[in-house]
């Protein structure tokens, strides 16, 4: 089992490297270069050449790639083209806002989706199941900004219960914080909840087609026990994968949510970077999100390997 886990870890590192090549390749090699981006339309050939010399852009791409990668590993994320500040500093001040949103949303949506998914599976074919299936099917198809705007319209604009801006201040007390964060966290949770719930349900239902589930049912066991004790352990691996996928998918949700509710977070930074074509900033943000994604998937895989008795107890 340890061999398998180690192999999987190595694969993760490899994927991360490939990802870094893609990021670097897409932003550096393909269209023009950073110097052109800085100088914009008003550039002269001369100025370009000087700037390129200054920034070391004349060196081969491979050398620059390893330079950049080395910097990344040591925590040096480069200097922003737009603000001329170190990217690391810019990111640091924003990171917490995004992380807080994501963690809160995860803390709510993961247990809730598991519980709802299992409940739905237990009532398969019944009214609860059908209602939940319809609702989540619709929720999946609705754009996040629609959910966000509706929540905002109802709870912030009309009812005025909650705050439309997620900007928190250091002097806020718990309730003020809650009022500010409730809507963005709810929007984000909705976005992933439906998908996770559906996948939990279908993974469990899928297990129910196996002969061993029929066998267990014919022992006269109650549904609760069948679902939780017999089906869930076998559905664990797909469920873990889906959770990892959705947590990393939150990045897309977070981008929208931060825009709707004006959260000064990491993804806003990225979007601004994209608008201003601030290449070092884009690269750094992309690497961070990519790493999170790969890490989460890795974690899910390792957990499901450890939960598999075939691998835990070989013959």
């Amino acid at each position: 089992m340890h061999r398998i886990i180690l192999t999987r870890l190595a694969q993760g590192v490899l994927t991360l490297l490939l990802a870094s090549i893609i990021i670097f390749g897409a932003t550096e090699i393909l269209p023009g270069d950073v110097a052109e981006a800085i100088l914009g339309q008003s550039r002269t050939e001369e100025a370009l050449a000087t700037l390129r010399e200054e920034m070391g852009l004349n060196r081969p791409a491979i050398v620059r790639y390893f330079d950049w990668l080395g910097g990344m590993v040591q925590g040096d994320l480069g200097t922003s083209l737009a603000t001329k500040r170190p990217v690391a500093d810019m990111i640091e001040s924003r990171m917490w806002n995004t992380l807080r949103l994501a963690l809160l949303a995860a803390a709510i949506s993961v247990p809730l989706s598991l519980a709802l998914g299992l409940w739905s599976a237990m009532r398969a074919g019944g009214r609860v199941d059908k209602t939940l299936a319809m609702t989540t099917l619709a929720l999946i198809a609705v754009p996040e900004f629609f959910i966000g705007l509706i929540l905002m319209k109802v709870f912030a604009v009309e009812l005025k219960w909650l705050s439309a801006s997620a900007n928190t201040r250091p002097y806020f007390d718990f309730w003020q914080n809650a009022r500010a964060l409730a809507l963005p966290v709810a929007t984000l949770s909705f976005a992933v909840l439906a998908h996770m719930m559906r996948m939990t349900r279908s993974s469990v239902i899928n297990i129910f087609t196996s002969p061993y589930m029929e066998m267990a049912a014919l022992k006269g066991l109650p549904k609760r026990r069948l679902v939780v004790l017999h089906a869930l352990p076998n559905a664990l691996s797909p469920i873990l994968t889906v959770i990892a996928l959705n947590l990393s998918y939150m990045v897309s949700g977070v981008i929208i949510v931060e825009t709707v509710f004006g959260v000064p977070g990491l993804t806003r930074l990225l979007v601004d970077g994209v608008t201003l074509r601030d290449i070092p900033l884009i690269q750094a943000c992309a690497m961070i999100f990519g790493a999170v994604y790969i890490l989460l998937n890795l974690l899910a895989d390792v957990l499901s390997i450890m939960a598999n008795p075939r691998l835990r107890y070989p013959k």
Binding site: S210, P211, M213, L218, G220, H230, N234
Partner: peptide, 24 residues
Amino acid sequence: RHALRGNEVSYVAQSAAASFNPAL
């Protein structure tokens, strides 16, 4: 009726390999 199963009547299926829960 469900309470009778695994109590008064029990069942042996065709393939044991498929009828034992692999996780338990």
